[in-house]
Nucleic acid binder design. Structure first.
Length: 311
DNA sequence: ATCCAGGCTCCTG
DNA sequence: CAGGAGCATGGA
């Protein structure tokens, strides 16, 4: 089986090292092979387990070249599907310049876009993966969420060896659909969470839930259709639109992290309400997801910095 | 120990 | 119909 190689050249400014950093510190790092200048991941594409290795010789450059190496694809069509997934995950086709221009008038946000120049959205591979990860992430702390996610992936995801270490592709809807609720209890899933995840997967595998159809919907339409499903509330639906579909104009106005970040960076004396967040966001039109992502990232970095000082 | 985590459902009054 | 308990665990 041959190896397919491709080169991607995103528009400047664009930095690769932010992706590596985010993946390494996220609760999804177990899905990746993380090197100094490369990232690797397995995907199931049209029934084939494909390994993608992404390398970047100059990760801190603001106009890097990204090399993709696809192994295990039986033909070029499958390999190109893997490339499409990674273009999506790394936001290769979303230039940052228009966002930066739009934020130029806001002292706080232009400070963040300067500080984080080249940071683009890291997305999930597809809406299904985004949904499962979001449901698991409901309510619980990130450490516990990572334990739950990893154990699910190790339970039913395709396994392969890479440099002598086990590696897993994210499970397909069919793989999760085959599980029984009791299979997840020993992994410390609550009964409810086990039902939400498996029932959703069965819906997708059985064709009753059409994730493809979300593409043609507005944000509000998509959210309205998703929250009808058991276990999926507004927050979870918004996660899917942002991290799964990559909508750039999504505002998770009730999100606790966003509200904390606004309070911190705008120096407000209280945590803003959802209504206050919506009011502020009227100036962010078209880039709500980006503003949110930059605020989350900057707050995370500020927290990490103050923690470091303490030690 | 107690409370909250990148929520949501379901039961109670 | 609003309000609140319960979920499972980890960290502060």
């Amino acid at each position: 089986m041959s190896v397919f190689t491709y080169t991607l050249t995103p528009q400047s400014p664009y930095r690769f090292d932010y992706f590596r950093e985010r993946i390494a510190t996220s609760s999804n790092s177990y899905l990746y092979d993380i090197g100094e200048h490369h990232l690797g991941r397995a995907h199931v594409i049209q029934g084939h387990t494909v390994l993608v290795r992404v390398s970047c010789p100059e990760p801190a450059s603001d106009a890097p070249e990204i090399h993709l190496q696809v192994e295990g694809a039986p033909d070029e069509t499958t390999a190109l599907e893997a490339v499409k997934i990674w273009r999506h995950m790394l936001s290769v086709d979303r230039p940052l310049a228009p966002f930066y221009e739009k934020m130029a008038g806001d002292a706080v946000l232009s400070g963040l876009t300067d500080q984080l120049a080249g940071l683009n959205l890291l997305l999930e591979a597809d809406p299904f993966e985004a949904m499962i990860l979001a449901i698991i992430g409901q309510q619980v702390n990130l450490t516990f969420a990572e334990n739950l996610k990893r154990s699910l992936v190790e339970l039913c995801g395709d396994r392969l060896e890479l440099d002598g270490r086990p590696f897993y592709a994210f499970p397909t809807p069919e793989q999760i659909a085959r599980l029984k609720y009791e299979d997840l209890r020993p992994l410390k899933y609550s009964q409810r969470k086990a039902e939400y995840i498996i029932d959703f997967s069965r819906g997708v595998a059985g064709g009753e839930i059409d994730l493809q159809a979300l593409e043609g919907m507005t944000n509000d339409e998509a959210i309205q259709s998703l929250v009808k499903l058991r276990g999926i509330g507004r927050w979870t639906a918004e996660c899917v639109l942002l991290f799964g579909l990559g909508r750039s104009d999504l505002l998770p106005a009730a999100d606790i992290g966003l509200r904390n970040a606004i309070q911190h960076f705008y120096g407000i004396d209280h945590q803003p309400t959802e209504a206050e967040v919506r009011e502020m966001a009227s100036c962010w039109a078209g880039y709500e997801s980006y503003v949110t992502y930059y605020l989350w990232t900057a707050l995370g970095m500020a927290r990490a910095e103050s923690k470091k000082k303490k030690n």
